[in-house]
Design a protein around this nucleic acid. Structure first.
Length: 116
DNA sequence: AGGTTGACGGTTG
DNA sequence: GCAACCGCCAACC
């Protein structure tokens, strides 16, 4: 059976989400870009909402300025902050310093590269 | 088929 | 720094 294009894109997005290491955060746009579909950030949002149950680290995804996207006062927002802190990510109010905790896929490559 | 809806993002004032 | 505005695109009326 032929998979629709969006299904393929969603699969790539899920793969990318799973690649975000613990102790780091990625932005919605970043996930879309790394997945290879840079204009599909809104699809990332959808996938995230649906996969809140799946084995996807939904709590490691934040807005581009490093701010928590979930509505203030929501239980899910508190859960996200708690989960992030529990793996060592510093959360000041609703912001995270991306320079320190932002995911850098390039660095992951270094880890897997054979030493010179 | 056409309008609305978002856990968004870059740009602008 | 922030908020409004527009561009984006699949899902859902």
């Amino acid at each position: 059976m032929a998979a629709s294009t969006t299904t393929v894109i969603r699969r790539r997005i899920v793969e990318t989400l799973r690649a975000v290491p613990a102790g780091t955060v990625a932005t919605y746009g970043q996930i879309a870009q790394v997945a290879g579909w840079p204009r599909h950030t809104r699809l990332v949002v959808r996938v995230l909402r649906e996969a809140a149950e799946g084995n996807v680290p939904w709590f490691r995804i934040v807005k581009s300025p490093g701010k928590i996207a979930l509505p203030k006062g929501s239980a899910s927002r508190r859960e996200q902050i708690q989960r992030l802190r529990s793996e060592g990510v510093l959360v000041n109010g609703d912001r995270i310093d991306l320079d320190r905790f932002g995911w850098r896929p390039e660095l992951d490559e270094l880890l897997f590269r054979a030493p010179d």
